[in-house]
């Protein structure tokens, strides 16, 4: 199978299993540049797919290239990880660390050059609007602030591939608006993949979208393409109606 080296993500027949349960079932997805939204109901496989793209999980079967590299090879996996940003669904943190220390820790683990780390950490913290809390201990922060700390560590290395799992969970409306602007900005130079339940995030920030159900991709296209399926669907917006209509159709 010929993989496309110019794509940020090139997945062919990707399968993941947990015991006897198939979580991802032959996922084909090619993503290059911009902000890509992964939609789907709970248990659809969105988090597993993002964890696979983040090189946290190795695929049970199928082919995967990330930023043109094969993650099965150790040296190439390291090369991917240096250019990767990842925000997991549940961010674990060291309560005694300051915001700066936490982001700096992951800059160190990403093997950023020493001289670049402190300015890069400062920029990342400023970009997520936490400049006034840079010296605060993580245990003193609200849930929304912790989410922004997680985003800061993900973008500290100016990643070419940024993977965000439910990034806007816990953010207030004003923060979400700022965050979408940040996504669009990053999407101009790299590839951002966000997994979300929030249709309005997709409508505002994503230029491509895929809908995952039961471990399969049941739709891929632009948000406008998804909205075009609105007739007969349920929801407050055309995008929501398109989402429910496509899901209903996929389930027969």
């Amino acid at each position: 199978m010929v993989m496309n080296a110019t794509l940020s993500v090139d997945a062919r027949g990707l399968t993941q299993r947990l015991g006897r349960t198939t979580i991802l079932n032959g996922v084909d997805l090619q993503i290059s540049g911009g902000v890509f939204g992964l939609l789907g109901p709970n248990g659809a496989g969105k988090t597993t797919l993002l964890r696979t793209f983040a090189t946290v999980l190795s695929p049970a079967s199928g082919d995967l290239r990330l930023l043109g590299y094969d993650p099965r090879r150790g040296a190439e996996r390291t090369a991917i990880r240096r250019r990767l940003g990842y925000l997991p669904q549940h961010l674990g943190y060291y309560p005694g660390f300051t915001v700066f220390e936490f982001v700096e820790y992951f800059a160190l683990l990403k093997e950023m050059p020493s001289a670049e780390i402190r300015p890069a950490v400062a920029r990342a913290i400023e970009r997520v609007g936490l400049a006034d809390r840079a010296k605060a201990k993580l245990k003193t922060l609200s849930g929304g602030m912790l989410r922004r700390v997680g985003i800061a560590q993900a973008i500290v290395n100016d990643p070419d591939l940024l993977l965000l799992d439910e990034p806007t969970a816990g953010l207030d409306p004003e923060q979400r608006v700022l965050f979408r602007a940040l996504l669009r900005e990053i999407g101009q130079t790299g590839t951002v993949i966000i997994s979300t339940h929030l249709i309005e995030d997709v409508a505002a920030a994503c230029n491509r979208v895929a809908l995952l159900d039961g471990g399969r991709i049941v739709f891929r296209g632009t948000p406008d393409d998804l909205s075009s399926f609105a007739e007969g669907g349920v929801g407050d917006s055309a995008l929501e109606r398109g989402y429910t209509r496509v899901l209903t159709g996929a389930r027969g």
Binding site: V56, G74, G92, F106
Partner: peptide, 14 residues
């Protein structure tokens, strides 16, 4: 055990 275990698994330092 390590709160940042999930994130650590996606880092360049293996």
């Amino acid at each position: 055990v390590d709160p940042a275990w999930e994130l650590s698994r996606s880092m360049a330092i293996s």
